[in-house]
Amino acid sequence: MIAAEGLCAGYGGRTVLHGVDLAAASGELVGVLGPNGAGKTTLLLCLAGVLRPQAGSVRLDGDEMWRLAPHERARRVAVVPQSAEPAQGLRLLSLVLMGRMARLPLLGGYGPEDYRVALAAMQAAGVAHLAARPADELSGGERQRALFARALCQETPVLLLDEASAGLDAAARIRMHDLLAARCRAGLTAVAVLHDLNLAALYCSRLVFLKNGRVAHQGLTADVFRRDILMEIYETDVDIVAHPRTGAPQALFAPGAASPAA
C-alpha cells in the first residue's frame, strides 16, 4: 500500500501540488489523469521518494518514502520514466541490469540470478533480441520498452509509470498494459500517469483526476469516467461510448470541440 496524504510539493519556492490524497493497494492499477501542467509527474516523483514533500506525507507500508535510504527505496519502488538519454554506446542489457544495482554489494558484480531476472524482464518487454545493441541507437519506442524492462528487473512490489507507453505503437502499447494488468493480478501495486484516456479506462481499476495541483475527482473507473467530469477537467466537449467488446467507457472527441485556450 502506497499512500499520499495532504501532499504538497514543488520545486524551490514554487508549489505544484496542493494537498493531494491518493492511495494504491496491492493488486491495483491506479491511473492518474489530467491536463498538461496539472502536477502528474511531480506527484510520481514524490511517490518514488526522490522529491521531498513540502507538506504532507507519502508512505509505503507505513514508511515515509523520502526518508528511506536510496538503495532501500529502489528495492521497494521502481519507476518507468518518460524518457532517458543513455550514455553513448551503453548496451541495452547494461541499461536493464542497472535495475539490479541497488541489490549489489559494493565490490560484487552481477550474478546468475541477476541475469535470469534481466532476461525474463527483457523477454517480457519484448526487447531480448536487442540486448547487445547500444541503447542510444535504438528507436524511442524500443528504448521506452527497455526502461520498462529495467523497472521490472528491480522486482519491486510497487511500480510507477510516467507516460511509459506514450511512444509505443498500438500493439506494443496493448502488450505492455496486458503485462502490467497480469502483474497487478499477481499482487503488484501500480500507479500510472497517462494521457491516453481510453487506455486508462480499459486498464485502470481506479482513476485520479488532477487539475491545477489538486485532486478534482477520484474513484472507480466506472464511476468517474463520465462526460461531465471529463468536460470539466479538459474543458472540451466529449462523448462517452461503451467499448463494443469489453463495455468499458471510451471517450470520443470531435474536431473543434476544445474551448479556445485561455
Binding site: A48, V50, P70, H71, E72, R73, A74, R75, A78, V79, P81, A84, E85, P86, A87, L90, S94, L95, M98, G99, M101, A102
Partner: peptide, 16 residues
C-alpha cells in the same frame, strides 16, 4: 554508470 544517465535516473536506481 548510473550518473551517466543523469542525476534523476541515478536516484531512481537507488544511488545517492
Amino acid at each position: 554508470d548510473a550518473l551517466s544517465l543523469g542525476s534523476l535516473q541515478a536516484r531512481l536506481l537507488g544511488v545517492d
